[in-house]
């Protein structure tokens, strides 16, 4: 069947940060232009732009809802089920449930919510019993791993944040493959991902620290691959891999973060000075 012209995010092999079709919609960022809707979270009154999520409303109230698969910069997925809260008498995924009308009342600490979270944590802790974040949450909720169900404690909770990060800012080199309990993050054919550019987006997005990487002698190792780091033209510090720079294209520079900030500040300062009264003269005098 012929394609949908407006449907494919992927063009030319690199989906440039765009959400896949179907991943936008509910749970996408609220637009500030939306009218406000009012309601309560745990009894605290709050107003949010229509379409904001329970999670966002709760954060405005300084109410903490634990999350794992959620990441501010990535399309939401609602798959870890940890952020469940209660609304209209049933459980809802806080990171995606859109508040569309005034009068909402979300509960984030009701008995049903706490029981559900304990259940989810009891499952996840069997997968990643040593991950600090999971252990902390498990302790907080009084959950410990049941040895009867420790079948494959590989440290990964299959939240897919690494895959979404790679899709959003990298070449989509890794994917969640297979299905069911055996689902696994891997490169194609179960081998080190060929398309990987060593940008670390996956490792930095991982909530359990499962994706290991190291840097030594100007070489970065991740996903069983080695990447040479290009030196910063200002200070010589090595921050980006050559593959990453090539992937970004358009003469992306190897400036390290601090030099980039410093240079940017200098330029901004120049521009500000030029606009200030007496500025140009001051600059000349300097």
């Amino acid at each position: 069947m012929p394609g949908e012209p407006d449907s494919c995010a992927a063009g030319g092999g690199v989906p440039a940060g765009a959400a896949l079709p179907g991943e936008a919609g509910a749970g996408s960022r609220p637009r500030l232009a939306e009218p406000l809707v009012e309601g309560t979270v745990d009894g605290v009154r709050v107003a949010v732009p229509r379409g904001a999520t329970i999670l966002e409303a709760a954060r405005l109230c300084a109410i903490e809802i634990p999350t794992l698969c959620h990441h501010e910069g990535l399309p939401p997925e609602g798959s870890c089920r940890l952020c469940l809260s209660e609304t209209r008498g049933s459980l809802a995924v806080s990171c995606m449930y859109p508040l569309r009308e005034s009068g909402f009342a979300a509960l984030t600490r009701s008995p049903a919510v706490l029981e559900a979270r304990r259940y989810v944590l009891s499952l996840l802790v069997c997968r990643a019993p040593r991950a600090p974040r999971i252990r902390k949450l498990a302790d907080e909720y009084g959950v410990s791993p049941d040895p009867r169900f420790m079948r494959d404690p590989d440290g990964c909770i299959r939240c897919g944040r690494c895959v979404r990060a790679c899709r959003a800012s990298g070449p989509e080199a890794i994917a969640l493959c297979g299905r069911g309990f055996a689902r696994l993050v891997t490169g194609p054919f179960g081998r080190p991902p060929e398309a990987c550019v060593g940008c670390l987006a996956c490792a930095l997005a991982c909530p359990t620290g499962k994706i290991a990487f190291s840097e030594r002698d100007g070489v970065r190792r991740i996903w069983e691959r080695e990447f040479e780091l290009a030196p910063c033209p200002e200070c010589g510090k090595r921050a980006f891999t050559r593959e990453q720079l090539a992937f970004l294209g358009g003469g992306a520079s190897a400036l390290c973060h601090s030099c980039r900030r410093r240079l940017m500040a200098r330029e901004l300062g120049k521009a500000a000075a030029l606009e200030a009264p007496g500025g140009p003269a001051l600059l000349r005098a300097l």
């Binding site: 870890c80 989810v120 499952l123 996840l124 069911g180 309990f181």
Partner: peptide, 21 residues
């Protein structure tokens, strides 16, 4: 159902095999 679970959400992926066991 364990074999057919897509594995996306934790309860179905991890909880169903526990029931089966």
């Amino acid at each position: 159902l364990c074999e057919e679970s897509c594995g996306k959400c934790a309860p179905c992926r991890e909880g169903l095999p526990a029931l089966r066991d």
